[in-house]
């Protein structure tokens, strides 16, 4: 939706794109992760079409696990920066170092991951559900459907963002105003939202397909959009800023 230009003339605050941790595992897994997530979704797709509410609810569990694993392995948690972790790992080396890293990982990465999950499910998911309703989701029925769709978009797009940026108001203002430089986390969120928007297109068509029912197309659009946005943001357009004017 946005025109992306080379650079913003006057950056309001020095904001840097989020880099994937420079470990080999992180660099590799960040590319495997979307494939895993999409495959898992594809696998559950028939049951989601058959009965959206329980299937979407079930699908949240593996999604949240995968996302926490992804942020823990690949991304720097809020507050910390990528560099010290790397240094520690590099400095440690060998089996003992790995053990140490792992231990620090549970406290330093898994727990923020879970905290992000809590934020994504209690704050951003209801907000996104409200936005879905404003965009035309049923107001009086299908509440569980809408909320679950919002939860999926939230887990995909905002969980990593919360992990990286925490709940810092200024950072989130920039995020919502599309003022941050693009990276794979930010790109994933934008892609997920745009994908969900585009997912509404096939709903009115008179094809009489089961998968046209609410909210299957929205969720599918969000998954595909997230994967595309993550790749585009992390590789092609990394570091660029979005220009609206």
């Amino acid at each position: 939706m946005a025109t992306v230009l080379a650079s913003h003339p006057k950056p309001r605050a020095p904001a840097h794109p989020t880099d994937v941790l420079p470990t080999d595992t992180a660099q590799l897994y960040t590319h495997i992760h979307p494939i895993l997530v999409l495959s898992l979704y594809a696998l559950q797709f028939p049951s989601i079409v058959a009965d959206p509410v329980p299937a979407l609810a079930r699908a949240l569990i593996p999604l949240s696990i995968l996302q926490i694993v992804y942020v823990a392995i690949c991304l720097p948690p809020t507050g910390g920066t990528a560099t010290p972790v790397v240094d520690k790992k590099k400095a440690g080396g060998g089996g003992g170092g790995a053990e140490k890293g792992k231990k620090g990982g549970v406290r330093g990465t898994i727990i923020p991951g879970f905290l992000s999950l809590i934020v994504a499910s209690t704050i951003t998911a209801p907000l996104l559900a409200a936005i879905l309703v404003l965009f035309g989701a049923p107001l009086t029925t299908h509440h569980a459907h809408t909320l679950l769709a919002a939860a999926h978009i939230s887990f995909l797009g905002t969980l990593p963002l919360v992990y990286v940026h925490g709940v810092d108001g200024a950072a989130w203002r920039d995020i919502i105003a599309l003022l941050r430089p693009v990276d794979e986390v930010y790109g994933g969120m934008i892609g997920g939202v745009v994908g969900a928007w585009l997912g509404a297109v096939p709903i009115p068509l008179d094809w009489d397909r089961e998968w046209q029912k609410w909210p299957v197309t929205i969720v599918t659009g969000a998954y595909v959009g997230w994967a595309v946005g993550k790749m585009v943001g992390g590789v092609v357009l990394k570091g660029r800023k979005i220009v609206l004017e």
Binding site: M1, L134, F135, G136, R173, I176, A177, L178, A200, L244
Partner: peptide, 23 residues
């Protein structure tokens, strides 16, 4: 379903103008 499409577009505009206002 033109009415629903227009709703979608108008909400999109309002959503983007909110983002733009933040800037």
């Amino acid at each position: 379903w033109e009415d629903e499409i227009l709703l979608h577009f108008l909400s999109t505009f309002g959503f983007l103008s909110a983002l733009s206002s933040l800037r």
